[in-house]
Design a protein around this nucleic acid. Structure first.
Length: 510
RNA sequence: CGGAGUAUAGCUCAGCCUGGUAGAGCACCACGUUCGGGACGUGGGGGUCGUAAGUUCGAAUCUUGCUACUCCGACCA
C-alpha cells in the first residue's frame, strides 16, 4: 500500500500530478495556466534561489531588478526575438476599469498610448539600459542578474514544467568581444551543471543546442538536459551567446582603446521553477517526493507521539531539545534544518504527510524514546523493506552526531541512482536511421521505457536540418544537444550517411 | 489551436441509460473507547449536481450553446 493512489508504472503523468498535489508543492490557481506554489514547493525554490544566487554572485555578477512591463516598441527591434515570442505575449492595454452596462470592463477612454508587454524575458529592456550604461571598454564586462517572474501565454501548461507565469533567474552580460562573451556563456552553463548535480542531485548533460532549437535571437544556445524516470529529457537550464544581435538592435556600443566604436557581445542565461519539476520526476517514487536533503526546506522532521496526557509536556521538551541540538550541526554549508511538527493531528497522519513531501529523515518520538534517550526514525531514501516501513533506532547522541552524515549519504544516493539510470539509458549503438526507428518504434500505445540515443551526425543546417527534424518528429523525437564531451573521431551521419562531425543526443522531451 | 475525455460535498467517485427534488467512502467537527504508530464506535456539519438556455407539471438525469480542467497532438524554452 503506497502513499499515492497512482504509481509511476501505471500512469506517469497522473503520478506526476499526484506528487505535486500530495507533496504540498503547488495547486492549480483560478488564473488560467498559473499555479499557487505552496509552502513545501516554495521552500524548495527558496533553497534553489539561495544557493544559486550565492554562486552567481561569487562569479562576479550583481543583482538588479527591471520592470515587469516592457513597452511594446522594444520588441520590434530584434526581428528573430519578436518572432519567437510574439505568439505568447500578454499585453496590457488599459489603465482603468469602468462599469459598463453593469459589467466591469476596461475603460475605453483609458487605453494606453503604447501597449505594455508583461515580460516573457528581459533582453530588450535590459539591453536598453546597457546601451546607456556602456560607454567605454572600461565599462565591460557588465555582468547582471535578476530574480523575477515572467509570463508566456502557453497553449498547454503543466505544473512547474510549463506554466504561464513562472519564477526564474535571468543573467544578462555584455562583453568586449566574442571570446569574452563565450567564456561567460560557458561559465553560466558550468554553474548550472555543477549546481544541478551537487545541489539538486540531478545528473545532466551539458551541450550545445542545434540551430533549430536556439533561443530566438541567439547565435549559440547551450543547455543542460536531465533524464526523467520515464526516459524523457528535460531541459533544466540554458545559456545563450547572443553575439551582437541585441547590441545592433539596441545600440549597445562602446569606445575601444583606439577611440573607435564597437558593438558589445551579450549573453543571457536562466533557470526556472521548471527545475522543481525535474526534481520531482527524477527523485519521486510511489510514496511521493524524495526531496534531496540540500534543498529540503526541513531536513529532519520530528513527530512527537502525543497522546493528550500530562506526559506530553516531557515529550515536547525532549523533541524541542533534540531539534535545537540538530540545528547546531551543519550540513551542505548551512545549519541542519530540524523541525518539530506540533500540529494537533494524529501522528500517523503527520508521518505520511512528511513521507509524501519527502522530508529526508522523519523521527517518530514516543514517551519510551524520551525516557531512554533514544530516537526512532525512518529514512525517506529507504522507506520500506518489502512492503513494510523500516524504522531505525539510535541513541539521541548517536542520532545527532550522525544526522548530517545521513543527509549527505541520502543526497549522494539520490544522485548516484539518477546517474546510473541516465548512463544506463543512453544507447550509443544506433548507427542508422533504421536502427533509430526500430528502437523508438511508431506504435502509439508503446509504453515501454525508452531512453536517449547518442548518435553521430554531419550537422546539417537550414532546410536540411528541417528535414531531419521532420523525420524525428514522426518518432516524437527531438535533438537535445551536442554534448560538450565529444569523441576524437566520428562515424557517418545517421541522417545523411555523410561523414559525421559531432555526436548529438536524441530523446523524447518535455 | 485540433482530437479525446471529464465536470455531483474538501478528496475519490456512485446516481444519468429508464426525469420525481442528493448518496457512499475518505477528510472535517463533538463525545467516548483506544494508543510504539495510516485505530474504533456513536452523533453531527457540509452540495442552488461547472455554466446559460431549452423541453417538461417536474431536470443532476433529456437537448443545445458556453466555460474550465486532464491526456494526446500542434506550438514553445
Amino acid at each position: 500500500m503506497h502513499a499515492l493512489k497512482v504509481t509511476r508504472a501505471e500512469d506517469f503523468p497522473e503520478w506526476y500530478q499526484a506528487v505535486v498535489r500530495e507533496a504540498d508543492l503547488a495547486e492549480p490557481s483560478p488564473t488560467r495556466g498559473s499555479m499557487i506554489i505552496k509552502p513545501w514547493g516554495m521552500g524548495i525554490w527558496e533553497r534553489i534561489q539561495g544557493e544559486l544566487d550565492r554562486r552567481i554572485k561569487e562569479t562576479g555578477h550583481d543583482n538588479y531588478y527591471f520592470p515587469l512591463l516592457i513597452p511594446l516598441s522594444f520588441f520590434a527591434k530584434e526581428a528573430e526575438h519578436v518572432e519567437g515570442f510574439a505568439k505568447e505575449m500578454a499585453v496590457v492595454t488599459h489603465h482603468r476599469l469602468k462599469q459598463i452596462d453593469g459589467e466591469l470592463k476596461p475603460d475605453p477612454d483609458a487605453e494606453l498610448t503604447e501597449p505594455l508587454i508583461i515580460r516573457p524575458t528581459s533582453e530588450t529592456i535590459i539591453g536598453d539600459a546597457f546601451s546607456r550604461w556602456i560607454v567605454s571598454y572600461r565599462d565591460l564586462p557588465l555582468k547582471l542578474n535578476q530574480w523575477a517572474n515572467v509570463m508566456r501565454w502557453e497553449m498547454r501548461t503543466r505544473m512547474f514544467l510549463r506554466t504561464a507565469e513562472f519564477l526564474w533567474q535571468e543573467g544578462h552580460t555584455a562583453h568586449v568581444d566574442e571570446a569574452d562573451a563565450m567564456d561567460e556563456t560557458m561559465l553560466a552553463l558550468e554553474i548550472y551543471r555543477s549546481f544541478a548535480e551537487d545541489f539538486l542531485a540531478l545528473p545532466v548533460i551539458a551541450g550545445e543546442k542545434p540551430e533549430n532549437e536556439r533561443f530566438p535571437g541567439a547565435v549559440r544556445t547551450y543547455s543542460i538536459e536531465a533524464m526523467m524516470q520515464d526516459g524523457k529529457a528535460l531541459q533544466a537550464g540554458t545559456s545563450h551567446y547572443l553575439g551582437t544581435h541585441f547590441a545592433e538592435a539596441q545600440n549597445i556600443r562602446y569606445q575601444d582603446r583606439d577611440g573607435g566604436k564597437a558593438l558589445a557581445h551579450t549573453t543571457s542565461w536562466g533557470v526556472s521553477t521548471r527545475m522543481i519539476g525535474g526534481v520531482i520526476m527524477t527523485h519521486g517514487d510511489d510514496d511521493g517526493l524524495r526531496t534531496p536533503p540540500a534543498i529540503a526546506p526541513r531536513q529532519v522532521v520530528i513527530v512527537p507521539m502525543l497522546r493528550g496526557k500530562p506526559e506530553d509536556a516531557d515529550l515536547k521538551a525532549y523533541c524541542a531539545a533534540l531539534a535545537a541540538e540538530l540545528n547546531k550541526e551543519s550540513v551542505f554549508g548551512s545549519a541542519v534544518r530540524a523541525f518539530v511538527d506540533m500540529k494537533d493531528a494524529k501522528p500517523a497522519d503527520k508521518r505520511w504527510d512528511w513521507v509524501r513531501r519527502g522530508a529526508p529523515l522523519i523521527c517518530e518520538i514516543g514517551p519510551r524514546d524520551a525516557a531512554n534517550g533514544q530516537v526512532t526514525f525512518i529514512n525517506r531514501n529507504a522507506l520500506r523493506e518489502g512492503e513494510k516501513i523500516k524504522s531505525h533506532t539510535l541513541t539521541r547522541d548517536e542520532f545527532v552526531a550522525q544526522a548530517a552524515g545521513l543527509l549527505e549519504t541520502n543526497q549522494a544516493e539520490l544522485f548516484a541512482e539518477a546517474k546510473t539510470r541516465l548512463e544506463g539509458a543512453i544507447r550509443s549503438d544506433l548507427v542508422t536511421f533504421a536502427d533509430l526507428e526500430r528502437y523508438y518504434g511508431t506504435d502509439e500505445n508503446d509504453a515501454e521505457f525508452k531512453g536517449w540515443a547518442r548518435v553521430h551526425w554531419s550537422r546539417p543546417t537550414g532546410a536540411a536540418l528541417d528535414a531531419v527534424g521532420d523525420r524525428l518528429k514522426v518518432l516524437k523525437l527531438t535533438i537535445r544537444n551536442a554534448p560538450l564531451a565529444q569523441p576524437a573521431s566520428f562515424g557517418v551521419c545517421i541522417f545523411t550517411g555523410a561523414p559525421a562531425v559531432e555526436e548529438i543526443l536524441i530523446a523524447r522531451s518535455y
